[in-house]
Design a protein around this nucleic acid. Sequence first.
RNA 1: AAUGUCAUUUGGAUGACCGUGGUGGGUUCGCCCCAUCGAGGAAAGUCCGGGCUCCAUAGAGCGCAGUGGUGGCUAACGGCCACCGGGGGUAACCCCAGGGAAAGUGCCACAGAAAAUGAACCGCCUAAGUGACUUCGGUCGCCGGUAAGGGUGAAAAGGUGAGGUAAGAGCUCACCGCGCGCUUGGUGACAAGCGUGGCAGGGUAAACCCCACUGGGAGAAAGCCCACAUAGGGAGGGAAGGCGUUGCUCGCGCUGUUGAACCUCCGGGUAGGGCGUUUGAGGCGCAUGGCAACAUGCGUCCCAGAGAAAUGGUCAUCCCCCUUCGGGGGACAGGACCCGGCUUACAGGAUGGCAUUCCAC
RNA 2: CGGGGAGUGGCGCAGCCUGGUAGCGCACCUGUUUUGGGAACAGGGGGUCGCAGGUUCGAAUCCUGUCUCCCCGA
Length: 124
Amino acid sequence: MQQKEGLRLRFPRAAQIRHSKEYARVYRRGVRVRGRWILLVAAPAEQPPTARIGLSVGRKFHKSAVFRNRTRRILREAFRLCRPQAPALDMILIPVGKEDFWKLAPVQEELQQLMGKAVKKLSS
RNA sequence: AAUGUCAUUUGGAUGACCGUGGUGGGUUCGCCCCAUCGAGGAAAGUCCGGGCUCCAUAGAGCGCAGUGGUGGCUAACGGCCACCGGGGGUAACCCCAGGGAAAGUGCCACAGAAAAUGAACCGCCUAAGUGACUUCGGUCGCCGGUAAGGGUGAAAAGGUGAGGUAAGAGCUCACCGCGCGCUUGGUGACAAGCGUGGCAGGGUAAACCCCACUGGGAGAAAGCCCACAUAGGGAGGGAAGGCGUUGCUCGCGCUGUUGAACCUCCGGGUAGGGCGUUUGAGGCGCAUGGCAACAUGCGUCCCAGAGAAAUGGUCAUCCCCCUUCGGGGGACAGGACCCGGCUUACAGGAUGGCAUUCCAC
RNA sequence: CGGGGAGUGGCGCAGCCUGGUAGCGCACCUGUUUUGGGAACAGGGGGUCGCAGGUUCGAAUCCUGUCUCCCCGA
């Protein structure tokens, strides 16, 4: 029933930043907003109105590959669930705090707040 | 049954909804729909060994590195199996870099006389030779003899017992150990027996070294193709040449012959796509050979293929664990070309063999 | 993926190659000096040598495994 209203929460390739050129563009033009768990680097979308994200989870964040994979998946899931409300931005998500990172709901909440802040910062 | 020991195996289950990478199909062409497959026993550490790719078809010598009982297995190995020797344990079983110290060199602190050219500090002896004294019994010396005893040390020149002696000593004998020779058994490491020698002379080779065996180098960002792009940029070197080629020498190959190839530095441009890339020393089952590792044959299955990198989220029920009864939690851990090992991490289970002790029949 | 280096008192380092005593500077404590403090001088305490095995009579040192950190190349 929900499918009919166009609220399906997908996460296609077009919503991912995949090349180092695109990453470089966001880092050069973007603004930075920091929360408890996430550092968000955001720039106006290259292909509006599609919002896109890229993840940057290095070995410095956590030693365990399992933990890093889990972090990536939570970040992706958080973005996927927010996508209908997301502003047209290209964003890079960088995790910064590893305390209590394993729960989805609070992370998702923070991501929405940060996206709002980023839009304000860009328009000013 | 308890304890121990050696293996093998498992690594929460089911469902609903949303989402994701590959493949196949559909398609109203929309990253839309359907089907199907989608992390491990260690995927890990990157410690060995291969396959594969390029350099010469992978060559020679020196150097360097690794390995080190014997026989086998294997594509290969530093792995595995069996056996031998040594050590530990009542036993099952476990551990061992386990060749050479009469090729040479070095080192062995402190202590001790001495730490290796066969040693005399204390002690023991004074038989033989000799000097002095003498109460003619001897006494003290000299020249000596002696490795039994003491002490030092991690280690002191075979051990124990008996004979022997001036005191002693493999000086002699018995047993044990050791060396050498022979015989027998074994493919062999080695073992057993017999004879013989009279001890043949410390430790360290994970000190240098010697011996035997093994190893050419670089790595999937290897390498090949397509597309795009600067630019015919500047400086220096440049023929007894340059490059492949890395420590050296040789050899081989490619390239070039007078403003050129090529090399170095500076400056500039790319860094997209495809192949390699998953059918393989492959898994499972059965049979045969072998003590075993393993091999052979037959049958059967297709079992991730990403590339800023896919397996996730939410909820429910059950199963375990902890609980302060509210609840909290689910071992170690995530492919990056692929295999064979090794090493390390691992909650809780399951199965089997063997040993010791106890109980019952 | 490949290569290199480090781990020693609280901190920064030496000793390791060539095995037997763990040392130096700063810091700390006590005393002298000073009216007091600093400085100076004298004395003192403090180290499982990252961890686990092995070789050796003996290991910070030699060998093997392992953990952590740092640096380079592509």
